[in-house]
Design a binder for these strands. Structure first.
Length: 282
DNA sequence: TACCTTGTTGGAGC
DNA sequence: CGCTCCAACAAGGT
């Protein structure tokens, strides 16, 4: 379940591995996940060089020496890895991008970027470079969780006028981009806010703490290479370190590190939700 | 076998 | 109309 820290870690890895390489072939055994079509992708990107990889919220964005951008969302279990050619595809491999170093005469592929996804929930979309900002505006993706982008007064203004429960609201990606089910539980625990608190009932003090905690936890998790719970690995096949730092996610029945009360798991808006009933009261 | 997992969306319902 | 909530969906592991 890659959230912002995991997606950012994948981005950093892939940037080291494939920037400057030329796409010589694209194949897919599950073209349905390419929402804008496999043929279009092949037509526009074959023989193009990958010039950069960026990220917006949980979306990865591949850039080329062509006016197109490839937007990749990993959803639950999407993964990238690089392989030498001639390797047998694994069961859940869906897209194969053959890459050649963009130097010399060789069109001989050096390595293959493989996209694998057990659940097949991830998506690829090819869009014009000029349509990128429109794409995220239409999806109402909120600011990046950084001190520069994430404006506290705007955040407070939205919360003050909403009857939504805070956890599902934070998961919408509209208040701030990048939180998923793991980090939203961790953030609310650290800020001592009950996940079912009605947004407009949060105090100014709580909102301030929540704002700072979102930035802090996502930054910390990114620095640690994300959390490998379930099956997440980065593009080098390496696990993250943040799972060791989690306080409530997946800790049902264990003691709260603050007060020794047992961590509970409830359902909030259909999502498994971990919290300490003693530290996080409505 | 039915249920659970998650992010996102469309539409039901108030 | 505006807002909130929830089922549905993608597919397979347990």
């Amino acid at each position: 379940m890659p959230e912002l820290p995991e997606v950012e870690t994948v981005r950093r890895g892939l940037s080291q591995q494939i920037i400057g390489q030329k796409i010589v072939k694209i194949e897919s055994s599950y073209p349905r996940m390419i929402l804008t079509g496999l043929t279009e992708l092949q037509e526009q990107l074959t023989n193009k060089v990958i010039t950069g990889i960026s990220r917006r919220g949980k979306y990865l964005i591949f850039e080329f020496d062509a006016p197109y951008r490839l937007i990749s969302h990993l959803r639950m279990e999407g993964k990238y890895r690089l392989e030498k050619g001639g390797t047998q595809p694994l069961k859940h491999d869906h897209i194969f991008v053959s890459l050649a170093s963009n130097q010399g005469s060789g069109e001989h592929p050096d390595q293959i970027l493989v996209y694998a996804d057990v659940r097949k929930f991830g998506t690829w979309e090819l869009i014009g470079a000029d349509a990128l900002s429109t794409y995220f505006k239409q999806k109402k993706i909120g600011p990046e969780p950084t001190p520069m982008d994430f404006d506290e007064s705007l955040f407070a203004e939205k919360l003050n006028h909403s009857a939504k429960k805070i956890k599902p609201y934070l998961l919408e990606q509209t208040l701030v981009a990048g939180l998923g089910n793991i980090y939203v539980d961790e953030v609310l625990f650290q800020a001592k806010i009950h996940p079912e608190t009605i947004s407009s009932e949060l105090t100014t003090k709580q909102i301030h703490l929540l704002h700072d905690t979102i930035i802090e936890i996502l930054q910390k998790a990114t620095n640690l290479g994300g959390s490998s719970i379930r099956t997440y690995k980065n593009s080098f096949g390496k696990q993250g370190e943040m799972q060791k730092e989690l306080k409530v996610y997946g800790k049902k029945g264990e003691k709260c590190p603050n007060c020794n009360h047992l961590i509970e798991k409830i359902k909030v808006a259909g999502r498994g939700t971990h919290y300490c009933p003693n530290c996080q009261k409505i």
